[in-house]
Amino acid sequence: MSAKFKVNGWVEFVTGFRSPSGRFRIIRELPPDRGEPSYRVKGESEAFERVARESELRHLGAKVGALN
């Protein structure tokens, strides 16, 4: 499965319950989690990194319902 996001690219979390807000930079690609690409991301205003699956992210500025 090919990764949708590139290292150093900017993404945001898909809006939902407990979704952090703001811009997140892709730090690195990780091994797949539950069969989908995963990433280490860092929030623009956070001191720590997070792990996110591809389905939890979208390109920065994408509208709900739009194709990423």
Results as ranks from 00 to 15, higher is better:
residue 1 M to P: 05
residue 1 M to D: 12
residue 1 M to N: 12
residue 2 S to Q: 09
residue 2 S to V: 10
residue 3 A to M: 01
residue 4 K to Q: 10
residue 4 K to N: 10
residue 4 K to G: 02
residue 7 V to I: 15
residue 8 N to V: 09
residue 8 N to R: 13
residue 8 N to P: 07
residue 9 G to K: 06
residue 9 G to M: 05
residue 10 W to Y: 09
residue 10 W to Q: 04
residue 10 W to T: 05
residue 11 V to S: 01
residue 11 V to P: 02
residue 11 V to F: 02
residue 12 E to H: 10
residue 12 E to V: 03
residue 12 E to A: 09
residue 12 E to M: 08
residue 12 E to S: 10
residue 13 F to S: 05
residue 13 F to P: 02
residue 13 F to W: 02
residue 13 F to C: 03
residue 14 V to S: 07
residue 14 V to A: 03
residue 14 V to N: 01
residue 14 V to R: 06
residue 16 G to C: 10
residue 16 G to I: 12
residue 18 R to H: 08
residue 18 R to N: 11
residue 18 R to C: 07
residue 18 R to F: 11
residue 18 R to A: 11
residue 19 S to L: 11
residue 20 P to T: 07
residue 21 S to I: 15
residue 22 G to T: 04
residue 22 G to L: 12
residue 23 R to D: 09
residue 23 R to S: 10
residue 24 F to L: 04
residue 25 R to Q: 14
residue 25 R to T: 14
residue 25 R to L: 11
residue 26 I to W: 03
residue 26 I to Y: 10
residue 26 I to G: 05
residue 26 I to Q: 00
residue 26 I to R: 05
residue 27 I to M: 04
residue 27 I to R: 00
residue 27 I to L: 04
residue 28 R to P: 03
residue 28 R to V: 01
residue 29 E to V: 11
residue 29 E to A: 02
residue 29 E to L: 11
residue 29 E to G: 11
residue 30 L to N: 12
residue 31 P to Y: 08
residue 31 P to R: 13
residue 32 P to S: 14
residue 32 P to Q: 15
residue 33 D to M: 15
residue 33 D to C: 14
residue 33 D to N: 13
residue 34 R to W: 13
residue 34 R to M: 11
residue 35 G to F: 06
residue 35 G to C: 08
residue 36 E to L: 09
residue 36 E to K: 09
residue 36 E to A: 11
residue 36 E to T: 14
residue 37 P to C: 11
residue 37 P to N: 12
residue 37 P to G: 06
residue 38 S to K: 04
residue 38 S to F: 02
residue 38 S to N: 02
residue 38 S to G: 07
residue 39 Y to S: 01
residue 39 Y to V: 06
residue 39 Y to T: 03
residue 40 R to V: 08
residue 40 R to F: 06
residue 41 V to R: 00
residue 41 V to L: 05
residue 41 V to N: 05
residue 42 K to H: 02
residue 42 K to A: 00
residue 43 G to K: 01
residue 43 G to S: 03
residue 44 E to M: 12
residue 45 S to M: 07
residue 45 S to H: 09
residue 45 S to L: 12
residue 47 A to T: 12
residue 47 A to E: 09
residue 47 A to M: 00
residue 47 A to F: 07
residue 47 A to H: 08
residue 48 F to Q: 04
residue 48 F to H: 10
residue 49 E to Y: 01
residue 51 V to W: 13
residue 51 V to A: 08
residue 51 V to Y: 12
residue 52 A to T: 02
residue 52 A to R: 06
residue 52 A to G: 00
residue 53 R to E: 12
residue 54 E to L: 14
residue 55 S to D: 08
residue 57 L to Q: 07
residue 58 R to T: 00
residue 60 L to S: 13
residue 61 G to S: 09
residue 61 G to W: 15
residue 62 A to Q: 08
residue 62 A to M: 14
residue 63 K to F: 11
residue 64 V to L: 05
residue 64 V to Y: 00
residue 64 V to I: 04
residue 65 G to D: 04
residue 66 A to S: 15
residue 68 N to W: 10
residue 68 N to C: 13
